[in-house]
Amino acid sequence: MPTRSDVERVLLPLGTAALAIVAWSLAVRLTHTTVFPSPLKVAAGLRELAARGVLWRYTGDSLRRVATGYSLALVLGVPAGLALGWIPALASAFNPVIQMARPISPLAWMPLAILWFGVSEAAPDLLIFLGAFFPIVVASMNGVRSVPAMYLQAGRNFGLSTPRLLARVVFPAALPQILVGLRIALGIAWLVVVAAEMIAVDSGLGYLIIDSRNAGKRYDLVVAGMLLIGAIGLVLDVVARRLERLRSVRWGFQGETA
């Protein structure tokens, strides 16, 4: 017999999704629209994309761009944030610049990205990097700043040198906050890649959407692309949340519901 929590975790969301599809289907039928596709048409569109081979290719292209830009943001952002959090003078020097650059939508960089790199892979990679870099830097910096003084004092007491203190106390103590930043940044990266692909390149899920609309008003493919983006985004978030359940960081997520 299914328990209550099974019902809530699995059946309720599935039921809601089923209801939404039924409502969508009914709405299309009742309004007699010829432009907006029904769920069945979208499913057929997905099969068509798979048959043409673009489904996997475009999905792969989008994921590869996110992987490139995001990895770069991760590799540069975490050390930069740790340094800014650890050295107050560095934070004083760079924080105003960071706080000013942060609210600029990565998409606003598009003209410059195209100017510098042309219509190439590097343009969306740069935008994804910019979108992910700042949240990672700020989360890492704040993570280091909020390490309780008691942990630092204990680390020093046991004779740890500064590099050891950073590796064995500061980083693990800040890790829960850093992971939150990484998860948020991954979500942003996935938002940015779609937008960037609409403008700067001719492949990927963002390109699929804009191309399907421009070349023949194929709204079945537009919606199919949107659903794919949503589903992949959900999977990415679930994977990122999994990291927060590791035993060595779970202490930082007390009182948070899964």
Binding site: P148, M150, Y151, Q153, A154, N157, F158, G159, V169, P172, A173, L175, S248, V249, W251, G252
Partner: peptide, 15 residues
């Protein structure tokens, strides 16, 4: 390290 400070129990490393 020859002289160790012990805090209230919040001083243990949770990770």
């Amino acid at each position: 390290p020859r002289r160790i400070f012990v805090f209230q129990e919040r001083g243990v490393f949770p990770w």
